[in-house]
C-alpha cells in the first residue's frame, strides 16, 4: 500500500515537472525541471525491473542532456520571450546612422 502511494506520488511529481518545464518562461528553470523528469523516470525504470535502462537514463538524461541544454542557453538567450539584445542594438545603430 505504501509502495503504491509512493509510486503515485512520484508519477504525479514527474507529470507536474513536465508541465512546469513547458509552462516556465525562464529556460534555465525549464531545463532543470526536465532533469527532474529524467531522475524520476530512472526510479520508475528501477521499479519496473529494468536496472540497465535505469543506469543509462540516470547517466545520460540527468547529467549530459542537462549540461548541453545549459551550454546552449549560455550561448543564446535565457528567456523565452526575450527581445534579444543584439537585434535591439543593431536597430539603435541603424536609426542613429
Amino acid at each position: 500500500m505504501i509502495f503504491l502511494i509512493s509510486v503515485i506520488t512520484i508519477a504525479l511529481l514527474m507529470v507536474g515537472a513536465a508541465i512546469y518545464a513547458i509552462w516556465q518562461k525562464d529556460l534555465l528553470f525549464a531545463v532543470i525541471a526536465s532533469g527532474v523528469i529524467s531522475l524520476i523516470l530512472s526510479i520508475l525504470f528501477l521499479i519496473l525491473q529494468a536496472p540497465d535502462v535505469a543506469l543509462t537514463e540516470a547517466a545520460i538524461g540527468v547529467a549530459l542532456t542537462t549540461i548541453i541544454f545549459i551550454i546552449t542557453i549560455r550561448n543564446t538567450v535565457r528567456y523565452e520571450d526575450e527581445h534579444d539584445k543584439k537585434a535591439k542594438k543593431k536597430k539603435v545603430k541603424n536609426i542613429s546612422k
Partner: peptide, 13 residues
C-alpha cells in the same frame, strides 16, 4: 511554443 530551445525540450520530453 515559439522558442527553438523549447521545441527541442518538448522533443526530449
Amino acid at each position: 511554443k515559439k522558442s527553438l530551445i523549447k521545441i527541442v525540450l518538448g522533443l526530449s520530453i
